[in-house]
Amino acid sequence: MSNDVEHAKRALRAELRERRGLLSDAQRESAATAIGERLDALVDELDARSISCFLSTLTEPGTREFVTRAVRRGIRVLLPITRADGLLDWAVANDDDETTEGLHGLPEPTGEVLGPIAVNDVDLMIVPAAAVDRSGMRMGWGRGYFDKTIGSMEKCPPVYAVIYDSEILDSLPREVHDQPVNGVVTPSRTLILSPSRR
């Protein structure tokens, strides 16, 4: 059974990765602007003073301008740093664009490294995803970093995944360790999916 789920996830991830790869630079820029505005509004709505976010890669929905703006607004932004043991360390973002290449070739911050529990104090978590289904179940890219982080938090704040509109699906293959999110932010909307998780 588990192998069937893994196979289904792998196939779906490949399809989603290919779809993202077909977007033009103009489409990516337009999506990043719209997502940034929605994230700004979400931070204001939740009165979040401390958040965690991620530095988007070229194919992910853009978060970098949002992060820079949040820092300049005086919001404390924690950015993830991958570890070999499958956990995430964190660093406080500043408003320059300096990054380094992380463990899996992902962009990571260069600031002082804080341990995994640093994220326990945030008011809002903004996470990457490959897709999210209508029940709030999130499918990541297969390494499990955010599932482990969310699953280990004693008091988890609202968690929102940033995806493209076409990546909200009716249902997703799921495994025991998969963690749901409260909602999604896409270029066209902010959608609450599982408010009971708060």
Rank of each mutant, 00 (worst) to 15 (best):
S2V: 09
S2R: 15
N3T: 14
E6W: 15
E6M: 15
L12Y: 07
R13Y: 02
R17L: 06
E18F: 04
E18T: 12
E18M: 07
G21E: 11
L23G: 12
S24H: 14
A26T: 15
S30V: 04
A34K: 07
G36I: 07
R38G: 11
L42C: 06
E45H: 15
E45S: 12
E45R: 15
S52N: 04
F54Q: 07
F54C: 07
F54H: 12
L55Q: 09
T57H: 00
E60P: 10
T63V: 07
T63K: 08
R64A: 02
F66M: 02
T68V: 05
A70E: 02
A70I: 03
A70Q: 08
R72K: 09
R73Q: 11
R73Y: 00
I75Y: 08
R76W: 07
P80Y: 01
P80I: 08
D85V: 14
A93K: 05
N94D: 13
D95G: 10
G105W: 03
L106C: 09
P107N: 05
E108V: 07
P109Q: 07
T110R: 05
G111A: 11
L114V: 01
P116E: 15
P116S: 14
V122C: 10
V122I: 13
P128W: 05
A129P: 11
A129L: 03
A130T: 04
A130P: 00
A131N: 05
R134V: 14
S135K: 13
G136P: 03
R138A: 00
R138W: 06
M139I: 05
M139L: 15
G140K: 05
W141F: 13
G142V: 09
G144M: 09
F146P: 06
D147W: 05
T149W: 02
I150Q: 06
I150E: 03
I150C: 04
S152V: 02
E154P: 03
C156Y: 01
C156F: 02
P157N: 12
P157G: 10
P158K: 13
P158T: 11
Y160E: 13
V162A: 04
V162H: 05
Y164Q: 10
S166R: 12
S171L: 08
L172D: 06
V176K: 15
V181A: 01
V181F: 04
N182S: 11
G183Q: 07
I192A: 12
R198C: 14
